[in-house]
């Protein structure tokens, strides 16, 4: 079932075209990753999909009653605004203590409830954002470069958490990232963006596509291999993932 469909999407800002001719869709339970270099319109596309900006051309259709769990790229909380983690989780809809606790546990930060949001580390903050996003039991979880500022093991752990959440809750996941190596292997589909969709398909297909290599070079393929080793805890070279080696060359 289609959750979000975009057809012929274009977004123009004064003076430049952020996106043009973008067709996109995501189905129930899918993990889709949007990759692209800085300034390629990834965040613009997400904001158009959630309805935060109006497309200049084309259409965006969301399934009626679609519940979106959104984890923004970064969220700055003014030091003048006091707010505990528990209170933050209750926005905009009041969550009771048990629900908040379950969401925090799912996000991997069970004991932060009474802390002030401004006192959290980068990793804890992102996980609280994730907990808030899954509280509404969303049909789709949307994450915009959610691991910015985390180190590589931190991002890898964060994405594993998301895989677990998807498995438990059955929601679709839409990721935006430039950290391809940590994200891609878990994705059902990858969309490579650079103002328009340059290529798309299964992770391995995209990683070896010439358009993708033109944007990112082949070096990132090696990093992809690195993550797969880590993820499956294989350290020998005799494992059943031929593409990772192809990527490493």
């Amino acid at each position: 079932m289609r959750l979000i469909t975009a057809n012929g999407l274009a977004v123009r800002h004064p003076g430049h075209v952020a996106l043009h001719d973008v067709d996109f869709h995501i189905d129930r339970g899918e993990i889709v990753t949007i990759v692209g270099p800085n300034g390629s319109g990834k965040t613009t596309l997400l904001r158009a999909l959630i309805g935060a900006i109006k497309p200049s051309e084309g259409t965006v259709e969301r399934m009626p009653g679609l519940r979106i769990g959104y984890v923004p790229q970064k969220l700055h909380i003014e030091p003048t605004l006091p707010i505990t983690v528990e209170r933050f989780l209750s926005l905009p809809n009041r969550a009771n203590r048990a629900q908040s606790q379950t969401a925090l546990e799912r996000a991997g930060v069970p004991s932060l409830g009474t802390r002030q949001m401004t006192s959290l580390s980068g990793g804890q903050f992102q996980r609280v954002l994730l907990a808030r996003a899954i509280l509404s039991e969303p049909d789709i979880l949307i994450l915009d470069e959610a691991t910015q500022g985390l180190d590589q093991p931190g991002s890898a752990a964060f994405y594993r958490q998301i895989e677990t959440i998807r498995r438990d809750m059955g929601c679709a996941v839409l990721l935006v990232s430039h950290e391809l190596h940590v994200v891609m292997s878990a994705s059902d589909r990858v969309v490579c963006l650079n103002g328009h969709v340059c290529c798309h398909g299964a992770p391995d297909v995209v990683a070896s596509a010439p358009e993708y290599r033109a944007l990112f070079g082949s070096g990132t393929g090696g990093a992809l291999a690195l993550y797969r080793h880590d993820h499956h805890h294989h350290h020998d070279h005799d494992h059943p993932h031929p593409h990772t080696h192809e990527g490493a060359n």
Partner: peptide
């Protein structure tokens, strides 16, 4: 109150919640 708070924290977060 609730909508105002979310919009104050992050307009995008509010938008994603349908506000």
């Amino acid at each position: 109150w609730s909508s105002l708070l979310v919009s104050t924290l992050s307009p995008d977060l509010a938008q994603a919640a349908g506000l």
